[in-house]
Amino acid sequence: MSSAASPAFKRLGDVVEQALPKLVLGPTLLASLVFVYGFILWTGWLSFTESRMLPRYELAGLVQYISLFQNDRWWVALTNLAVFGSLFILVCLAVGLLMAVLLDQRIRAEGALRSIYLYPMALSFIVTGTAWKWILNPSLGLERLVQQMGFTDFTFDWLVNPDMSIYTVVIAGAWQSSGFVMALFLAGLRGIDESIIKAAQVDGASMPRIYLSIVIPSLRPVFLSAIIILAHIAIKSFDLVMALTGGGPGFSSDLPATFMYAFGFTRNQIGLGAASAMMMLFTVAAVVVPLMYSELRRQRHG
């Protein structure tokens, strides 16, 4: 070909220059491959062994998964995750949407109010847990306050009541995260083309009607991403439970994350801990993948 007539080699500088982007991205990719994907496989491997205090690498089949699902504490953790997860998501969505819609009504001091609703997001779950642990204190906290207001029969002992302890996690968790959902929805509301709302007004629709049939349905993508994020927070929830109830009383407010920590690190059951970690990964995948997939498909089909 004619290019043979031209100098086929490139200058060294140009070669380096061309490789630079890949070189720069390299370490991150390597880190991701090893410390994310590699470690997932590693944990997966451990979950098929009889590792206890020290990791062992002879495969032993599904023993850990079998003992996991024969473990009452794991079932409590799973049930709690279902209860906590669904309530947490529902409350956050409802409160977040309410606040966003209210704030969207040309409110004075909107900025200040928004900041107030959102500041819990800046706190550590440990701080949140500590604060709510005090507020929900069965003798000195909310219970005493209401009793002093004249309702002397009032009891509020959820924090130490094994049947109710998981709901305290919902209360504290929703307090921390609903402001964030508000911010998402508010951004979504601000992104709606105002001429659509004007057109509906011209058509004679009332404001509540406009919200119900036009505005909120058009927030569908926001709902989806909010649900994905909230589900993700719920499944990973660890710090809040540790600070608020420590998983107790007993193990009544355990979640998979605290279960994994207890068995993997404090009770020297590495194999079981690995199995529970893998189950958490599968749960996240089971929730996130279908939601993301449906969203992507919807976007593609316009």
Partner: peptide, 13 residues
């Protein structure tokens, strides 16, 4: 494939 020449010089590289 192919060549680009600026001022009669192949500049592919």
């Amino acid at each position: 494939s192919g060549d680009v020449l600026i001022g009669d010089q192949v500049v592919n590289h």
